[in-house]
């Protein structure tokens, strides 16, 4: 109880700092989801008909996910310096696999009869893609985006190590000052805010799911 009180006191004592870190963290999530989402979906669409290209794309995306996250944040520093850029690149690479994989799975899972009739009625290849394939694969793609979003919220805490800001700042400073006063509070604050952010983003994506998926395939 005492700890909870001192945690609240700690948080409200530096509201500005908290809001800034939260905004940075959320900024990573949004910018990475949008760019990686578009990139992975386009890559999935382009490569899916070619066995070789598609396997290659999937293996490359898997490799990114197996590189230790700490290393992935650091290796881009010589190229792009410190701060937002190396963090963004690392998170971008991390979030590709779930979206790419689900895009390919979703497009593969479409009933061939539906595609045959779409072509047979005279939809052009682009119309088939935009009006039939993507809407039908969307629930699966969106599930991939959700997995990636959770991944990013967690891993974005590492950005602090390359001076990228975010909620990781609290965790890092707490760790550095352990066991001085307010160090545990800082660690807990960073962690709890990450969880809350993850929850809010999940709710938003859930709402997007209901809003963008046709009742016919829900």
């Amino acid at each position: 109880m005492d700890f909870l009180l001192s945690l609240l006191e700690f948080a409200f004592g530096r509201q500005e700092q908290v809001l800034e870190a939260l905004a940075q963290h959320a900024g990573y999530v949004v910018s990475v989801l949008v760019t990686a989402g578009v990139f992975a979906i386009v890559t999935g669409i382009v490569t899916r008909r070619n066995q070789l290209a598609r396997e290659l794309a999937l293996s490359i995306a898997s490799v990114f996910l197996t590189i230790p996250s700490l290393a992935l944040f650091v290796i881009f520093i010589p190229l792009v310096g410190l701060g937002f850029a190396p963090s963004f690149i690392a998170l971008f690479l991390y979030s590709l696999l779930p979206i790419l994989r689900n895009t390919i799975t979703g497009l593969d899972g479409i009933d061939p009869g539906v595609l045959e009739s779409a072509k047979g009625m005279g939809l052009s290849p682009l119309q088939v893609l935009l009006r039939v394939e993507l809407p039908l694969a969307w629930p699966v793609i969106l599930a991939g985006i959700r997995v990636s979003s959770m991944l990013i919220v967690g891993i974005a805490a590492i950005a602090t190590l390359v001076a990228g800001g975010g909620l990781g700042d609290f965790i890092k400073s707490g760790l550095a000052r352990l066991p001085l006063p307010n160090s545990l509070e800082a660690i807990w604050l960073g962690t709890i805010l990450c969880l809350l952010l993850a929850l809010v983003i999940d709710l938003i994506l859930q709402a997007a799911r209901l809003a963008t998926i046709s009742k016919g395939i829900r």
Partner: peptide, 17 residues
């Protein structure tokens, strides 16, 4: 193809429409 009707065994209605 827009000038030719096409009906197949699997029907192929668009499930999201």
């Amino acid at each position: 193809r827009r000038k030719i009707g096409y009906v197949i065994q699997q029907v192929g209605l668009f499930p999201h429409r």
